[in-house]
Design a protein around this nucleic acid. Structure first.
Length: 117
DNA sequence: TTGCTGACCGACG
DNA sequence: CCGTCGGCCAGCA
């Protein structure tokens, strides 16, 4: 188990529930490194090295745009994965983004206060 | 060691 | 509603 920034990013990404999405910036802010959203993206770029699966398709930019789609092998893979979870995508953009948005800062804090969920 | 690069973001004109 | 720019900082050549 290593304590690198990348590992922390992967841990948060794995906590994103099925059918929900979050943003690079939200993850960076949750980790206390606000403004380092690019590092989160960089971590995603290397996420394939992880043995355990990382649901990187649930991470989009702050506008709900699928900016990382070209890193999934085939161009349509990310969109396909999201649609299979009930998230509609149009023009590389998540439809009703706010409705599906999962903010780790809020959700994980609630979880720790209420004690699991 | 230096100097790019980048799956971002907010500010500015 | 555009485009551009600076900050962010871990890898890599």
């Amino acid at each position: 188990m290593d304590h690198s920034f990348f590992q922390s990013v992967y841990s948060v990404v794995r906590l994103i529930p099925y059918g929900r999405v979050t943003s690079y910036g939200a993850i960076a802010e949750y980790l206390g490194t606000r403004g380092s959203a690019r590092m989160v993206g960089w971590a995603m770029n290397a996420c394939h090295t992880q043995a355990e699966n990382v649901p990187a398709h649930r991470v989009v930019n702050r506008n709900g745009m699928l900016t990382g789609k070209r890193h999934f092998g085939a161009p349509g893979t990310m969109e396909q994965l999201l649609k299979s979870e009930g998230i509609d995508v149009k023009d590389d953009q998540v439809v009703d983004f706010e409705k599906h948005f999962w903010n780790p800062l809020i959700e994980l804090r609630m979880m720790s206060l209420r004690g699991t969920q």
